[in-house]
Design a protein around this nucleic acid. Sequence first.
DNA 1: TATCGTAGTATACAAAAAGTAACCTAAGGA
DNA 2: TCCTTAGGTTACTTTTTGTATACTACGATA
Lengths: 120, 120
Amino acid sequence: MVHECKSKRTVETALEILVGKWKPVILFHLIDQGTLRFSELQRLIPDVTKKMLTTQLRELEYHDIINRKVYAQIPPKVEYSITEYGEGLKPVLLSMHEWGLTHLDHLDDLYGESQETIEK
Amino acid sequence: MVHECKSKRTVETALEILVGKWKPVILFHLIDQGTLRFSELQRLIPDVTKKMLTTQLRELEYHDIINRKVYAQIPPKVEYSITEYGEGLKPVLLSMHEWGLTHLDHLDDLYGESQETIEK
DNA sequence: TATCGTAGTATACAAAAAGTAACCTAAGGA
DNA sequence: TCCTTAGGTTACTTTTTGTATACTACGATA
């Protein structure tokens, strides 16, 4: 049971950080690969625009979930990675992932919805 | 590590269900109290408007997270409760809650932000 | 007869989030 | 001299969310 002693805003606080159309995918890739450049993220997430990628990364950075490392080079090079603090989100993402798997099965059961399978 | 074999959309699927300004609070109260009437939810969540409460409840119902039981009475009586399937979200909410607690501490450390404490 | 309470709906509007398209920068290479 | 590259920014539009207010049906109560 969720205990309420401190504040009711804890779940919302976690959501605040996770919510954003591209944040889960970004975190997924950074957790998976460790460190990625801006352009690598762009390639891994084909539908994201530069603008959205930038804003989502900035928000994650603002919350100290990811690191942004700029190399003083031309052309520029910027690397993103999960912070130690951000690692703490893994259990959250994992439980959501687990639940998502079940939910997709549930949907399959209900509507026979076919879910795209993405290979590595 | 989050494994990608089935689909990347699992986390987003979970988020879809949880996201909405009032959904976490609604779920919180329903998990906490078991069954609640529309008006009881309104009283427990003072800032929510009828419209938002209705839409958020409908969305949760659509996803089979909560039950809506209508009594054929005047004045109307409608009761909401978590479905068995919806119970599966508890681990997700709990891990978010846990993370939220840590995050609030982290914020306290960084900015000394004071967080309102709500008593039961 | 007027008002109260329940669980809403309808309508209009405001604000926030997301998307589109074009532009910027400076170095190195053709 | 112009083009390319990487990682953006800016201005603008569209879509999604959320708010505010009014309204309904029906029976009970005063």
